[in-house]
Computed example of a mutant assay.
Amino acid sequence: MIRGIRGATTVRFNEEDEIIKETKRLMEEMAKSNQVNPELISSVFISVTSDITATFPAKALRLIDGWKYVPVMCMPEIDVPGSLEKCIRVMMSVETKLPQDKVNHTYLNEAIQLRPDLTKE
């Protein structure tokens, strides 16, 4: 079964090092909490708010062992007035045996407010 695993995080500054660090942290937590093997990842889509322009967050995936061939694409998030700033959102499609209600979606930093119903305490 192919399932979508959602995740999001925020950065304090539009700086390459922080964007890469926080994206890598998010991806590693998403993979760990769902026992994801990179061989079973179909694709990863990453969207960013318009205030993130210093680098492509997808670069972070290349720093994770075994993720060299994972297809990844970055795109802009819809610019909705009043939405969370400096936010990186991820949709990872993976082959898994987990039932949909057992998938662990990961929200870090200020992004916790996006889906408090899915955030573990």
Rank of each mutant, 00 (worst) to 15 (best):
E77W: 09
E28K: 14
I5F: 02
A58W: 04
K97E: 14
E22T: 12
M75P: 00
Y107W: 05
I88K: 05
E121Y: 04
T53G: 05
R62Y: 13
V48N: 04
S50D: 15
L84A: 10
I64P: 08
L118N: 02
K59A: 09
W67K: 04
P71R: 12
C74D: 15
S43I: 04
Y107L: 01
I52P: 08
F45M: 10
K59M: 07
I64K: 05
D17K: 15
M27Q: 06
E28A: 01
V36F: 02
T53I: 03
I64L: 01
R62N: 08
N109L: 01
K102F: 02
T9K: 06
I78M: 08
K68F: 01
V44G: 04
E29S: 08
N14A: 05
L84C: 07
I2H: 07
I5C: 02
P71S: 07
S42L: 08
K32G: 00
V103I: 15
S43Q: 13
E16L: 06
V72P: 02
L40K: 15
I64E: 07
L108A: 05
C74Q: 12
L118D: 03
V94G: 03
T55L: 00
L114Y: 08
V94C: 01
K24D: 10
V80I: 15
R12A: 11
M92V: 08
M75C: 07
I19L: 05
L26A: 07
Q100L: 07
T96F: 01
Y107C: 01
E39C: 00
M73T: 15
E121T: 04
Y69N: 15
K86W: 02
S50T: 13
A8T: 13
A111C: 03
E95M: 03
M30L: 11
T49Q: 10
I78N: 10
I20Q: 10
P76D: 12
E121V: 03
D117K: 07
E15W: 07
E29H: 02
E15L: 09
E110L: 06
M92K: 10
E22S: 04
R3F: 01
I78Q: 12
Y69S: 13
